[in-house]
Each structure stands twice: as structure tokens, then as C-alpha cells.
Write a protein that binds this DNA or RNA. Structure first.
Length: 205
DNA sequence: CCCTGATTCGC
DNA sequence: GCGAATCAGG
């Protein structure tokens, strides 16, 4: 059966995508392949991210001579290259970095009580040979970083902080009202957008 | 080889 | 609509 793209999963996809995570990484967190992520992203219309390649237009095969003869190329001759820098994506949190804010946040702020003992599960819920080798480790690591708390599902205008294990029953999002322009509520935004300054007076606590 | 995202096309 | 297969650049 195909992936069930619910409001939540789509919200997550959008969020993670916006955070600049790779399609593969998003896929891992959503328990789908990168292809699925990319495919869905396209269908959703979101896709303004740096692509490693640019694949020449191949969809349209060589047309007839007539088409070629058409005044396709104006005298302008100037290649209207697109904007060089599409501008920074993220809303520019304190610490964009390259790493997903989620991970860093979890690492930096282990939340003594809220952290789950890393269910380490997942294998059972996953397809047998779906994930070859490094998947388990990564999955485990991810699971270990994932905070757990009270659910409160909601589609729009809700905190996208993941709670539980993606792809498994019981998974949900915080759902609280997010900060303006941010995918997380005030509480989780603190975790998500952790400052990098190591000399923070309240560092690590 | 690994990674990345992009596109196609059978389902 | 979905996503594996495939493609293509780094």
C-alpha cells in the first residue's frame, strides 16, 4: 500500500523540508524513501531547494522541424539565468547550521525527564529489508533523541514537534499553538532553535 | 562508491 | 496520487 499522506505527515514533510533536511533524511524520519519524499514534495508544489543536478529538459523530445524553425530564440540572445541565490530558506533561527535543528536541540537539551528511553523498536514496524545496514543505527539514534510527551493532534496552526516514533502507531505532534513564523510552539522552539554559544550561562544546565 | 535531488511512468 | 526505477551531478 502506498504511503498515507495525512495532514500530519504532510505538515512534517513541509517542516523538515523547510528545515533543509535532505530528502533521504526526511524519508528516514517519515519512514518512507527519499523518492517518496521528493515525489510528494513535487506534488505539494514545494521544492525550492538546491539541487545537485539540473537535468536538461528531456521531457520534450526533439520536436518537428517546424517547431525548431519557429522563432523560439529571440535576438535577445541573453541567457536569463535565474536568480543566483534563491535567498536563504529557513526563517533564520539562531543556529541554522547544517544539522537539523531537531537533532541538535535534542543533543544540547536532553530534557532529563521528557526523553524517552529510546524504544529502539522500529525494526519490527519497518519493512524487513527496507533498510539495509546503517539504517538501524541511525534509526536508533534518532529514536533516542526524540522527546516524548502528551499528544494533542492538530493539523494547522500547530506545533510540529514530533512526539513518538514516526511511522508507528502513537506517533503525533505537539500540536500547541506555534510561534509566528515558526513551526514550533514557544516551548519547543526553545529546543529546536538552541543557541550555539557554548558559553551560554545556562548552557546544558 | 557514497551522497544528493529530478524525472518518468507503471501502478 | 503514489513512489520505484532511473537518471544525473557532486
Amino acid at each position: 500500500m502506498a504511503m498515507e499522506w495525512t495532514e500530519e505527515t504532510i505538515a512534517r514533510l513541509r517542516d523538515l523540508w523547510q528545515q533543509g533536511l535532505s530528502t533521504a533524511e526526511i524519508g528516514r524520519q517519515l519512514s518512507v524513501t527519499k523518492n517518496a519524499v521528493v515525489g510528494k514534495a513535487h506534488r505539494l508544489g514545494l521544492k525550492p531547494r538546491p539541487s545537485p543536478i539540473r537535468r536538461a529538459a528531456k521531457a520534450t523530445p526533439p520536436a518537428d522541424a517546424a517547431t525548431q524553425a519557429a522563432p523560439v530564440a529571440p535576438p535577445a540572445a541573453v541567457a536569463p539565468k535565474k536568480e543566483a541565490a534563491p535567498a536563504p530558506v529557513v526563517a533564520a533561527p539562531p543556529a541554522p547550521e547544517k544539522e537539523p535543528a531537531l537533532v541538535k536541540a535534542a543533543v544540547a537539551a536532553p530534557e532529563p525527564k521528557a526523553v524517552t528511553p529510546a524504544p529502539a523498536a522500529e525494526p519490527a514496524a519497518e519493512a524487513p529489508a527496507a533498510r539495509p545496514a546503517r539504517a538501524p543505527a541511525r534509526a536508533a539514534a534518532r529514536a533516542a533523541l526524540r522527546p516524548v510527551s502528551e499528544p494533542r493532534r492538530r493539523s494547522s496552526q500547530s506545533c510540529c514537534w514530533p512526539l513518538g516514533d514516526p511511522g508507528t502507531p502513537g506517533f503525533h505532534f505537539c500540536g500547541a499553538t506555534p510561534l509566528p513564523g515558526k513551526p514550533y510552539c514557544a516551548e519547543h522552539a526553545q529546543l529546536a532553535y538552541v543557541k550555539l554559544r557554548s558559553d551560554r550561562r545556562d548552557n546544558v544546565a
